[in-house]
């Protein structure tokens, strides 16, 4: 997952993640990419469009 610089770590992405793969730190998001099932709910709900699926992976 690409977390763009304008992410403000509000955690809405983590709230809708069915797999619970997102850890929201004060100034950082950590994704457990192995467990991610690619539903993209996190990308969809981000209020500022800061998340992008890294299609290379």
């Amino acid at each position: 997952m690409i977390v763009n610089e304008w992410c403000m770590y509000c955690g809405e992405c983590a709230g809708v993640c069915p797999q619970c793969v997102i850890e929201v730190c004060e100034t950082g998001l950590k994704f457990d990419e192995q467990t991610c099932e690619d539903c993209k709910f996190c990308v969809m709900v981000c209020p500022v469009g800061a998340l992008e699926k890294d299609e290379q992976k």
Binding site: G15, V16, V45, P47
Partner: peptide, 12 residues
């Protein structure tokens, strides 16, 4: 406690 996107307002 997972909220579905249809039940989660995106606020700004």
């Amino acid at each position: 406690t997972v909220f579905m996107p249809k039940h989660m307002e995106s606020g700004v």
